[in-house]
Simulated scan of single mutants.
Amino acid sequence: MIVTLTANPSVDRTVTLTEPLRRGQVHRAASVTSHPGGKGVNVARVVSGSGARVLAVLPATEDDPVVHGLRTAGIEFRTVPVVGGPRVNLTIAETDGTTTKINEPGHPLRAGDLAELTALLVELAAGAEWIVLSGSLPPGVPVDWYCRLVATLSTPRSSPNGTHRLRVAVDTSDAPLHALFAEHSGAAPDLIKPNSAELGQITGLDAVALEDPAAAAEAAATLIDRGVGAVLATLGAAGAVLVTADGAWFAAAPPIRARSTVGAGDSALAGYLLADLAGAAPADRLRTAVAYGSAATALPGTELPGPADISLDAVTAHRLVIVDRPPAPA
């Protein structure tokens, strides 16, 4: 089972325009759609759509529209009751695939809320293969909270089948991402999924330069040296890079007509996890991630891909040789 945490859930609303966006002008919408959102919720939606078991954890009330959306979609969830409703994230989508996002900050979480969420994740850890910590943190939450969760959840614990150590994936940015790699943080996720900008944030390298797969792989390798199990670096239209202690791989994105980038990174992460649960080799985990991410980009608004949208045969992966490192065994 995959468990996702969405600390800052949202209602994702997409307004699709009939013409290019022009500041200060009146526009007409071709369509408006809304879905339960937040990065962890998006991962849960994709995993559930594939038929695999997933459980979404989030701070929310019973009448929360995100909870309603999860219930309607038949996605398992557990909540910690909090004060306040979800934020609204607005995406303005143009006909050429350009998207402009305006994200609300969300409602603050109290120390007691964080303690309950932590306890719930620890409870679920015994039955999970992956826990995904995904998205931004609400106002007032310590920036090192994900760091503390990684340390807590990575502790081996007993299960009916013996000692069980689940794996932890993190997909975040800015201060929470920096905190994971702060000196003496003690937190080394089994997987992180940065884009080129986020990879630049934690390595101090230029984000534009990191859109080159070879440069991204070299930067990601420095994170493996710091204890991270795997780095899945998504590079937008270029594809993605996967780096582990065993080597590095690149998969180019297949040609598509881009309609919306909303949820593409979350879909790529979900695809990777699904392939991992199926026992796929690293190159095939990467291929599946790119296939899911590309399929999301080809869909309108906040729609997310299912198995019928995936074209795995259109994606190939090959090894990369990282400078100053011995080649991995074939």
Rank of each mutant, 00 (worst) to 15 (best):
A298D: 06
R110C: 06
T155F: 04
H107V: 15
D225F: 09
A215C: 13
P329L: 07
G247V: 06
G271K: 00
V43N: 14
R259Q: 14
A291P: 10
V170L: 08
H178L: 11
T14H: 01
V57Q: 02
L5Q: 07
T99L: 03
L109V: 10
K193T: 07
D96A: 11
T61L: 15
V66Q: 03
L223T: 07
V122M: 10
G84Q: 06
D190T: 07
G162D: 12
G162L: 11
V323P: 01
S34N: 10
A238L: 05
K101T: 06
P20V: 04
S48I: 02
E94D: 14
A295M: 02
G204C: 08
A245E: 09
V3A: 15
D96I: 11
S311P: 01
A253V: 04
V132Y: 01
W249L: 02
S31D: 15
G265R: 07
A111T: 14
T152G: 06
L299M: 09
A209W: 03
G263L: 02
I131L: 12
V66L: 04
L117P: 00
P9A: 11
A251M: 01
L21Y: 14
L21E: 08
L286Q: 02
L277P: 01
T6D: 09
D212F: 08
A151D: 08
P59R: 08
D12G: 02
A217P: 13
L114R: 09
Y146G: 01
S158A: 09
S136K: 07
A93Q: 11
V241I: 12
E76H: 14
N195S: 08
T79A: 14
E76V: 03
L199I: 09
